[in-house]
């Protein structure tokens, strides 16, 4: 199988049960596949399991049953350190909150995945990440710290951070949930453009039907099952 045919991410009979006082089955047998270059929107009621699904796809959480393959690798076969390395190199996360670190500049925050992998980012990394920051319109903000940035700028920094190690897959969990409509529009367009320019696969959870419809495909979670629209 050639490099081109490997899916960005693939779930087979994915189940997730939370074993609390009363066991809750959140995902009950999900099958899906996202190819490189695709932009997939995920819709669903609050509490329907969208975040749970994304966490399982992104090697952040382990499924109760079934398999997840990221870039052809079966996550069940990897130990915690290998999962961490896979998240670092193959997956980018964007959350509703930006989770940038106040002690670091915009550039340092965006370089965080590189630093985790290498200790010190090299010149090449620096150039690549700087270019990305310029691409999202933050060329003049490199040395600013997160509290000095607007909400939209913070989230754009988080987008660059997700892309810093050139992953195959970006998982965005309500990335525009905290933003006003203008910033939402801008953040979404940037993600979509980068998706088309670089071929990185995106899976975006959103409540906004209008944004969702601008992706390649829409998936909807209901009663723990996934439906293609």
């Amino acid at each position: 199988m050639g490099e081109e045919q490997v899916s960005a991410v693939e779930a087979v009979e994915l189940e997730k049960v939370y074993y609390g006082a009363v066991p809750t089955t959140v995902l009950r047998g999900i099958n899906m596949r996202v190819e490189p270059g695709e932009f997939v929107s995920v819709l669903g009621q609050s509490g329907s399991g969208k975040s749970t699904l994304l966490n399982c796809l992104g090697a952040l959480d382990r499924p109760s049953a079934g398999h997840v393959r990221v870039a052809g690798q079966d996550l069940a076969r990897l130990d915690d350190d290998e999962l961490a390395d896979l998240r670092n190199s193959q997956v980018g996360f964007i959350f509703q909150a930006h989770y940038l670190q106040d002690e670091f500049t915009c550039l340092e925050n965006a370089l965080m995945p590189v630093s985790i992998r290498k200790g010190n980012p090299g010149d090449e990394d620096l150039a690549r990440v700087t270019r990305l920051l310029e691409r999202v319109g933050l060329g003049h903000r490199l040395r600013n710290r997160p509290p000095q940035l607007s909400g939209g700028e913070q989230q754009r920094t988080a987008i660059v951070r997700a892309l810093a190690n050139e992953p195959r897959l970006v998982l965005a969990d309500e990335p525009t949930g905290n933003l006003d409509s203008a910033s939402s529009e801008q953040v979404f367009s940037l993600m979509r453009e980068i998706n088309q320019e670089t071929g990185v696969a995106f899976i975006m959870v959103t409540h906004d039907d209008r944004l969702a419809s601008q992706g390649d495909r829409i998936l909807r979670i209901e009663d723990g099952l996934l439906f293609e629209e």
């Binding site: 952040l60 915690d80 961490a84 896979l86 670092n88 996360f93 989770y99 965080m112 985790i116």
Partner: peptide, 16 residues
């Protein structure tokens, strides 16, 4: 804890 959580999400190993 938030910051630590995000570091781990970004691929920091337990030992790090």
């Amino acid at each position: 804890s938030k910051e630590i959580g995000i570091l781990k999400a970004l691929g920091a190993r337990r030992r790090q």
